[in-house]
Design a protein around this nucleic acid. Structure first.
Lengths: 242, 242
DNA sequence: GCACTTCATATAGCGTTGCTATAGGTGCTA
DNA sequence: TAGCACCTATAGCAACGCTATATGAAGTGC
């Protein structure tokens, strides 16, 4: 239950803090817990790290190196936007694997004071986006694109962390990811909206679905299911309810 | 410097807490500060709110009503996706106007415990997205779309809050907003290239029918039939067209 | 009018928190 | 051996969230 006594106290404090943080489940971690686990007394902590926040900053710095290592741990695919996708996924995975550390890094926000780690992560993404810009694949300056993508990336990761593990829907991540990357890329175009008819939305939608289903040979339903499904669809689409 | 002594202590505590929170600049606010400003002693606070978190929850609840009021404070434009855009902007404005309150509401996150306010905000957005789905403008089920848009909305707002006011770039917000709305809308299906990322008409029609059914209380199907029907509908509308 | 209950607030203090003034031990250089 | 950094421990402070207990005020039944 205690940290190896042979290591220097500074390292022991770092490991104790990181370990307690990971196990705390989001609850506060006290300096007394940390120093006791590290086998040192209070002044040692303040000698090496100044205050509690200094210690946590050091833990975050170590965590950030791991984060950066993850973000660079893939061979460039030659397709910059594909690399951005991988960066996004690495970011989410990092957050889900070490949620407490992630929350200290990206969640503990104070107004008008940006954590250094956010700026660093932004620079990392901007660097990658620069390659896309050089290749003519970016419709937005890399800096703005990086900020926008990172903001969405953090938002999605925070939302996934709040969900209980078994019911996490990673499609939330991939969908948001592709939306953001598409938005900053040169692929995009624009279009206008549709028109309406006077019929009930249920009927209109049911008729549309009926026609679409017949033309598409969707295999989401078995043939017997589909038969019953179409029968119900018919009942709905021939009804006169408002 | 003190709260009007004529009001009941419960109200005075709420106002004192909200006031100190707004002025704190992100620093912690102690119960002693709150009770002193409210002109009461500690047990009064715990009598009315249980503990400090209970008091802050009450402040958040009051703040959320303001948030909801803001989110509903515009006439429906008849164009659901345009209303979603306004909801997004209201969300950002709320966060920038009361950053400390916003951080308590959306920033104080703990793993695997979702604040009620997030679920409520999600429901609010899903409600609006349902109208878009009924109009056939949604290529994604409203629930998933709401989660995705809200995640990005929170991420952007948090990022803007960390910036100092004079250099805030609201284009970050509008760009991310339009990217997300575009991504969940059927516009992209209409203009997408040959047979790749665009959703099939079957899926769009199924989503619209699903939303329309929930809004119309059609009685063409029995409850047990409807249950199975909706289940199949869900399978169709969440099928990936990779 | 009077005991009785209930609600709301105050007095005083508990245990814990982050942090520090002070002093002592350790290993190095001279 | 003396001096000098560097590092760590003893002990304790002020502030924190919270509570056991008591007191006053307001209603209720007889």
């Amino acid at each position: 239950m205690s940290i190896d006594g042979q290591l220097p106290p500074k390292i022991r404090l770092l490991r104790a803090a990181a370990g307690l943080l990971a196990k705390s489940g989001g609850a506060a971690v006290s300096t007394r817990q940390i120093t006791q686990l590290a086998g040192v007394t209070a002044p040692t902590l303040y000698h090496h790290f100044g205050d509690k926040e200094g210690l946590f900053d050091a833990v975050v710095a170590a965590g950030f190196e791991e984060y950066v290592a993850g973000e660079r741990d893939f061979a460039p695919s030659g397709e910059p936007l594909e690399d951005i996708r991988r960066m996004w996924d690495q970011h989410v995975q990092f957050g889900l694997k070490q949620p407490e550390l992630y929350l200290v890094m990206f969640g503990n926000i104070r107004p008008e004071s940006r954590p250094a780690v956010v700026a660093d992560a932004e620079a990392l993404m901007e660097e990658m986006l620069n390659k896309a810009a050089v290749a003519g694949q970016l419709a937005v300056p890399p800096k703005e694109a990086a900020r926008s993508i990172l903001a969405a990336n953090v938002g999605v990761t925070l939302m996934l962390i709040t969900e209980k593990a078994p019911e996490r829907n990673l499609e939330l991540s991939s969908m948001t990811r592709d939306a953001m990357i598409f938005a900053v890329s040169t692929e995009q175009a624009r279009q206008a909206g549709p028109g309406d008819s006077g019929k009930s939305p249920v009927v209109v939608a049911a008729i549309a679905l009926n026609a679409a289903l017949q033309a598409s040979h969707s295999d989401q339903l078995s043939s017997s299911e589909l038969k019953l499904f179409l029968e119900w669809l018919h009942r709905i689409s021939t009804s006169s309810t408002s």
